[in-house]
Design a protein around this nucleic acid. Structure first.
Lengths: 218, 218
DNA sequence: TAGATTGTTAATCGATTAACAATC
DNA sequence: TAGATTGTTAATCGATTAACAATC
């Protein structure tokens, strides 16, 4: 009924949100390397942006630089982690225990970055019951129980194109709050459920086009 | 010295290029399902775009729809494949034979879509010589020979953050024409070499933020 | 023919860059 | 202090949407 009273409810433009993880990764790395301060010009050079874009972007988070010194790497890291919600673990389930799915489940970088895979599911009897690291591939029937029992936030979809929409429906029904889509399909879900696409083949196509434009071979 | 005489040299805006692979995947699928015609409104609905965006996007490729019927799925697929260079095989090398790298090398979808992995490389003696499907992990010393011998277009980088820039330098030196970056690093390369980022962790962060904004839990 | 759907132009919207006063 | 670097406003640039004449 009132105006939003909390600090920082202001929504950050999508294009800026997409860059914030890059600043976070870079700030993390600089701090680990013992660098204490970084300027917008240095950040821009490291990430392929103008210093102007960097300052605009960082003006969206609750953190300020200091004239003549720049940004504290530790402070920047903390503020970005807080804004992005990277300061606590997030629980994910992964659907599709093919090569790609199993590799993602085993990818230590996810756990290091706070994304815990707490379940791997598949519909094929051939893989149900097999181990993937410390987990065992479960049947799709067990999905709803795990999602509501363990407060699962995110579903990662790594199934073939033809199965993708059905799996997305099951995940939404089970109650996940967002989907990471690694399939070629476009997933249709209720408006309240965000979907982020991470399609490697599409990225390869985009790259192949850029390569071709540079100096056509055919 | 002359004006560009070829057809279609006009450069397509980056934002459109990024959507073309989606149209291609969808047109492929529709054709396979036996659907012969599709309207801009249907394409938009299937891919989460307005019909206006669809018509604008398709105006950049050398293909025309027909009033009252829409676009021929087969014609659309062919024109998009031609524009994107998806009508011939592209040879890739993959650097980094960890979980993710091996999974990508084994991912049949790449081959199906015309991206042939013709070499897997790693700098760690522990994995050199091991099999990955039909390939054997090679030492980085053998990279330059393979790239120029086999006309390799694309290098796929799947190594840890700290090794990414060094590997990118080696790939560029060896002569690849574009890089697909799956590491958290931002790669700095000569202006003529396009880089496309496909960072799964960054995508997860973006998603986690969207989820948090929807209904904050913390 | 009448109606639906295209291709394209013009209007709106959003993102990036430039510029500069404030400030450490 | 003088100089460098921020935060922010204004200007530019590009992308999306709306509108509509052309046309099958």
């Amino acid at each position: 009924m009132d105006e939003p009273a909390e600090t920082q409810p202001a929504r950050i433009p999508p294009t800026v949100v997409r860059r914030l993880p890059k600043y976070l990764a870079h700030a993390q790395r600089l701090r680990q390397m013992g660098v204490e301060w970084v300027s917008s010009a240095e950040l821009g050079e490291a990430l392929g942006l103008t210093s102007s874009t960097v300052r605009q972007d960082l003006s969206h988070i609750d953190f300020y630089g200091i004239s003549k010194r720049g940004y504290s790497t530790a402070g920047l890291e903390a503020a970005l982690a807080q804004t992005l919600g990277a300061d606590h673990e997030i629980c994910c389930v992964l659907i599709g225990a093919g090569n790609l799915g199993r590799a993602l489940a085993l990818h230590e970088e996810f756990a290091r970055q706070g994304f815990r895979i707490c379940g791997v599911f598949d519909s094929s009897a051939a893989v149900i019951g097999k181990r993937v690291g410390k987990l065992v591939v479960q049947s799709m029937d067990e999905l709803p129980g795990m999602v509501c029992g363990q407060d699962v936030d995110i579903g990662i979809v790594t199934v073939p194109h033809g199965a993708a929409q059905r799996v997305a429906d099951q995940l939404v029904l089970a109650g996940v709050r967002g989907l990471l889509n690694l399939t070629p399909a476009h997933l249709i879900v209720p408006r309240k459920i965000p979907v982020v696409d991470a399609r490697v083949v599409a990225s390869l196509r985009e790259l192949a086009y850029a390569v071709k434009i540079n100096e056509p071979r055919f």
